[in-house]
Computed example of a mutant assay.
Amino acid sequence: MRLFRSSELLGIARETLEFVLEASEETHPNEYMGFLRADDARKLGLDRSGQVITNVLVIPGTTSNPVSATVKTSMKPNDVSSVGSVHSHPNGVLRPSDADLSTFGQGKVHMIVGAPYGRDDWRAFDNQGERTTLDVVDVDLPEDQFFDFTQSDIDAELLADGRHSGVVAPEDREDDDDDRGGLFSWLR
């Protein structure tokens, strides 16, 4: 991983834009809200420095209705890959409201997606609410490996690292009702 990435935002991955449009349509008639994350362009196979929006982070506890979406900002991670926000306007208006402008302080770009959520039913804005260009880029998105594991994998890693002595392999348990070990055993 490179410590210093180019801050130039090259665009949004086509697949990510399609996800945003579909998620906004599925949330309709309520607003959709998320935070945009970017990856280094070279990691995506582009022969250019900069960043491409590849992911949308939806914060747990986000609530929405037909005229607003509210995010629990305390749940938003301090994330260096975050480059802005996206939300929908179910009424189809593709310009920021005064309330939107008050939330545009962080990030480089803020997208508004509007009904009927077709491929041209979105706009990008800068922190001041001025329309900006955001190219749609054809790249292969990196595979998200974060959830590519099982409980057995977690237990084995904990045992191998010696981080948790309470993990007991299923075959070593004295009775089936014993709930020692597992992902949440550290909560006890």
Rank of each mutant, 00 (worst) to 15 (best):
Arg2Met: 09
Leu3Ser: 13
Leu3Gly: 08
Leu3Phe: 13
Phe4Glu: 14
Ser6Asn: 14
Leu9Lys: 04
Gly11Leu: 06
Thr16Tyr: 05
Leu17Asp: 03
Leu17Pro: 01
Leu17Phe: 06
Val20Arg: 01
Leu21Cys: 03
Leu21Tyr: 02
Ser24Lys: 07
Glu25Val: 00
Thr27Pro: 03
Thr27Lys: 12
His28Val: 06
Pro29Tyr: 08
Pro29Trp: 02
Glu31Ile: 04
Tyr32Ala: 08
Met33Tyr: 14
Gly34Asp: 04
Gly34Met: 01
Gly34Cys: 01
Phe35Cys: 01
Phe35Gly: 00
Ala38Tyr: 08
Asp39Asn: 13
Asp40Asn: 13
Asp40Thr: 04
Leu44Asn: 00
Gly45Thr: 02
Gly45Trp: 10
Leu46His: 07
Ser49Gln: 14
Gln51Ile: 02
Val52His: 01
Asn55Leu: 11
Asn55Cys: 10
Val56Gly: 00
Val56Ile: 15
Ile59Gly: 04
Ile59Pro: 03
Ile59Leu: 06
Gly61Asp: 01
Gly61Phe: 04
Thr62Gly: 03
Val67Leu: 08
Ser68Arg: 11
Ser74Ile: 04
Met75Leu: 14
Met75Tyr: 15
Pro77Gly: 01
Asn78Lys: 13
Asp79Tyr: 10
Asp79Gly: 11
Val80Met: 09
Val80Pro: 13
Ser81Tyr: 12
Ser81Asn: 13
Val83Arg: 08
Gly84Ala: 10
Gly84Trp: 00
Ser85Gly: 12
Ser85Met: 10
Ser85Asp: 03
Ser85Phe: 00
His87Asp: 05
His87Ser: 06
Ser88Phe: 04
Ser88Gly: 07
His89Asp: 10
Val93Arg: 13
Leu94Met: 09
Arg95Glu: 15
Arg95Thr: 14
Arg95His: 11
Arg95Tyr: 11
Pro96Ser: 04
Asp98Met: 07
Asp100Ala: 06
Thr103Gly: 05
Phe104Leu: 10
Gly105Tyr: 11
Gln106Glu: 15
Gly107Asn: 03
Gly107Thr: 00
Lys108Gln: 15
Val109Gly: 06
Met111Arg: 05
Val113Pro: 02
Val113Asp: 08
Gly114Cys: 08
Gly114Ile: 08
Gly114Asn: 12
Pro116Met: 07
Tyr117Phe: 12
Tyr117Pro: 09
Asp120Phe: 03
Asp120Leu: 10
Asp121Gln: 11
Asp121Leu: 01
Asn127Glu: 13
Gln128Met: 11
Gly129Trp: 07
Glu130Phe: 10
Thr132Val: 15
Leu134Phe: 07
Val136His: 00
Val137Lys: 06
Asp138Tyr: 01
Asp138Gln: 09
Pro142Ser: 04
Glu143Asp: 09
Asp144Glu: 07
Asp144Gly: 07
Gln145Asp: 06
Phe147Gln: 05
Asp148Ser: 12
Gln151Cys: 02
Ser152Met: 07
Ser152Glu: 15
Ile154Ser: 08
Ile154His: 12
Asp155Lys: 00
Ala156His: 03
Leu158Glu: 12
Leu158Val: 07
Leu158Asp: 07
Gly162Cys: 02
Gly162Val: 02
Gly166Cys: 02
Val168Arg: 09
Ala169His: 12
Pro170Leu: 05
Glu171Met: 03
Arg173Asp: 00
Arg173His: 02
Asp176Lys: 11
Asp177Leu: 14
Asp177Glu: 15
Asp179Lys: 09
Asp179His: 01
Asp179Arg: 12
Arg180Asn: 14
Gly182Pro: 05
Ser185Thr: 09
Trp186Met: 13
Trp186Ile: 15
Leu187Arg: 15
